[in-house]
């Protein structure tokens, strides 16, 4: 029984190091501190377990989250039709590959990608939400709308010219302030 908890500790610590998203690493560390606190309890040290539970699950989580605020987040909206989501919530292979390419770009530029699938119309997204990029797909042409203050846009253009997609073509547009 104790051995299972020890194996869980090894698995969670390796996963927390290997994951690509820092927000998920914080959650893995929460599970890690839960498990190690249980191990302390089983070894007969409840006072150490109490301190580990307080520090590990609350204080370090809050400190990590506050530190993550300094890390930039790149919000990408993907405008879909309502019936385009297939069963199990999975997208088709081509769309998954497109998203993988964008995530690779964000990792290279030291940004954290946050991808949101939306069924709202384009004007509504532009008016209502905070965004960096909006992707709209029509007849194998992906139109990429960028925010007026998006200073990574030129490097994104260069990156996408090198990493061409087998099916889609790209078209770049900058949103003017007048549309708002």
């Amino acid at each position: 029984m104790l051995e299972i908890a020890l194996i869980l500790i090894v698995i969670t610590s390796i996963t927390a190091i290997q994951t690509r998203y820092l927000r998920q690493a914080v959650l893995y560390l929460g599970l890690f501190s839960m498990a190690i606190s249980f191990v302390y309890l089983m070894y007969g040290a409840p006072d150490v377990a109490l301190a580990e539970a307080i520090i590990g699950s609350t204080l370090s989580t809050i400190l990590f989250i506050v530190a993550l605020q300094k890390y930039k987040i790149y919000t990408i909206y993907y405008a879909l039709q309502a019936d385009e989501l297939e069963e199990n919530g999975q997208l088709s292979i081509h769309k998954q590959q497109l998203i993988k390419t964008l995530e690779k770009f964000c990792t290279k530029q030291e940004l954290e990608a946050q991808i949101i699938y939306s069924t709202e119309p384009l004007e509504h997204i532009i008016a209502q939400h905070q965004y960096a990029l909006i992707l709209v797909e029509k007849n194998d042409v992906i139109t990429i709308y960028a925010h007026p203050e998006n200073y990574k846009f030129d490097s994104l253009k260069q990156f996408l010219e090198i990493e061409a997609h087998p099916r889609y073509h790209y078209e770049f547009l900058k949103v003017e302030e007048d549309i708002l």
Binding site: L85, E86, N88
Partner: peptide, 8 residues
Amino acid sequence: ISGYKSGK
């Protein structure tokens, strides 16, 4: 609020 969509 984050707009997470899941399968039917």
